[in-house]
Design a protein around this nucleic acid. Structure first.
Lengths: 120, 120
DNA sequence: TTTATACTTCAATGATGGTTGAGATATTGA
DNA sequence: TCAATATCTCAACCATCATTGAAGTATAAA
């Protein structure tokens, strides 16, 4: 059960443009993750800057890192994201599931890559 | 489809202790909402302070307000919360649903009030 | 209309956060 | 070992945010 302080740290981490883009990139990249250099290139910031933000995200528990050769690979910590969602929506409907059902549906849809397939 | 800027504003709004408590209180309160005074009392801040934070949350689109007599009633905007979750987890699993399945489960469980029932 | 209640607005203060660039550390190949 | 690559640490600067208290607005009751 995620604590309030943990949730606050996570939301603070996600409230900055570069960091939100990093997390989105790692969420879509999957468990294999991405090297710091690739991330910096992808979001268009300096290496020192991406390093700062990666540390923030790691401290918040949203991403994890491992060394591979001279690269450091970062990846999303999916359970932390699940926990955050659960914290936000806990006891959301007071016995009225129709109130929070759209949220469940929205999350279910996340497993359908890149929207256009929905129209197929 | 939620835009990045909208998500950033929402996460920034949720990254402050008083505001996170306000949202949690309104999420559990349900669509009827709560009067500003009750919210201030519940989280233990001054009326001027809760007013400031309620405005922030309203600008972020996470809560809505309506006047009822001399009270102003605030309530959670559930679709905004769903949208935020969807934005964060979009394309999360790259064809591997098992990666994001725990998030779906966590959210499903939100309709089961106060956690302990999980152990039953 | 006067008084009380419920909230909001405003300005001033102190605290926190983001960016930058220079220098340091770690790994690899020549 | 030397040089190149990849990333991190640090300090300084500027910008943004939270809190407070006083004054203002809106509604309702006496």
């Amino acid at each position: 059960m995620m604590a309030e302080r943990q949730a606050l740290t996570a939301f603070a981490a996600l409230s900055q443009e570069s960091r939100l883009r990093i997390v989105r990139a790692l969420v879509t990249a999957g468990p294999e993750g991405l090297a710091a250099g690739l991330i910096a290139e992808g979001i268009g910031v300096s290496s020192s800057n991406v390093s700062f933000h990666l540390k923030e995200l790691e401290h918040a528990g949203l991403i994890a890192s491992r060394r591979e050769g001279r690269s450091i690979i970062y990846s999303a910590v999916y359970p932390a994201l699940s926990g955050l969602i659960a914290f936000l929506m806990r006891d959301c409907c007071q016995g009225r599931p129709e109130v929070c059902a759209p949220a469940v549906t929205a999350l279910d849809a996340c497993c359908t890559p890149s929207g256009e397939i929905v129209h197929a």
